[in-house]
Simulated scan of single mutants.
Amino acid sequence: MEFNTERLTIRPFMNEDLDDVFNIYSDQETCRYLLHEPWTHDNKQEKFNKKLTNHSLTQDQALSLAIVNEGRVIGDLSVWYTGMKDTVEVGYTFSQESSGKGFATEALKGLLQKLFIDYKVHRIQATLDARNEASGRLCERVSMRKEAHFVQDYWNKGEWTDSVVYGMLVEDLEERLK
Rank of each mutant, 00 (worst) to 15 (best):
H36E: 13
E37V: 02
E37K: 08
P38K: 04
P38V: 01
T40I: 06
T40D: 04
D42Y: 11
N43Y: 15
Q45Y: 15
E46I: 01
E46V: 01
K47C: 10
K47Q: 13
K47N: 10
K47I: 03
F48K: 04
F48P: 02
K50A: 14
K50H: 10
K51F: 14
K51T: 10
T53Y: 12
N54Y: 03
N54V: 01
S56L: 05
L57C: 05
T58Y: 15
Q59Y: 07
Q59C: 15
Q59W: 08
D60M: 04
D60K: 09
D60N: 12
A62P: 00
A62H: 08
L63R: 01
S64F: 02
L65Q: 03
A66D: 08
I67K: 04
I67S: 06
V68Y: 05
V68L: 07
N69A: 11
N69D: 13
N69S: 14
N69G: 04
E70L: 12
V73G: 13
V73A: 15
I74L: 09
D76K: 06
D76G: 09
V79T: 01
V79P: 00
W80P: 02
Y81M: 06
T82F: 10
G83M: 03
G83E: 02
G83I: 00
M84V: 10
D86E: 11
V90D: 09
Y92D: 14
Y92A: 14
T93V: 04
T93K: 01
T93F: 00
F94H: 00
F94N: 01
S95W: 06
S95G: 14
Q96R: 14
Q96G: 11
E97G: 05
S98D: 12
S98V: 03
G100E: 02
G100R: 02
K101L: 04
K101I: 01
K101C: 03
F103E: 02
F103P: 01
A104F: 01
T105R: 07
E106Q: 07
E106K: 07
E106G: 10
A107E: 05
L108M: 15
K109R: 15
L112T: 00
L112W: 02
K114E: 11
K114T: 06
I117K: 12
I117C: 10
Y119N: 06
K120T: 05
V121L: 10
V121W: 06
V121N: 08
H122I: 05
H122L: 08
I124H: 07
I124D: 12
A126C: 14
A126M: 08
T127S: 14
A130R: 02
A130F: 14
R131L: 06
R131G: 13
E133S: 10
E133Q: 13
S135T: 05
S135G: 11
S135E: 08
G136D: 08
R137D: 06
L138S: 12
L138I: 04
C139N: 06
E140K: 08
E140I: 02
R141T: 06
R141P: 04
V142G: 12
V142R: 09
S143L: 07
S143T: 11
S143Q: 12
M144N: 13
R145K: 09
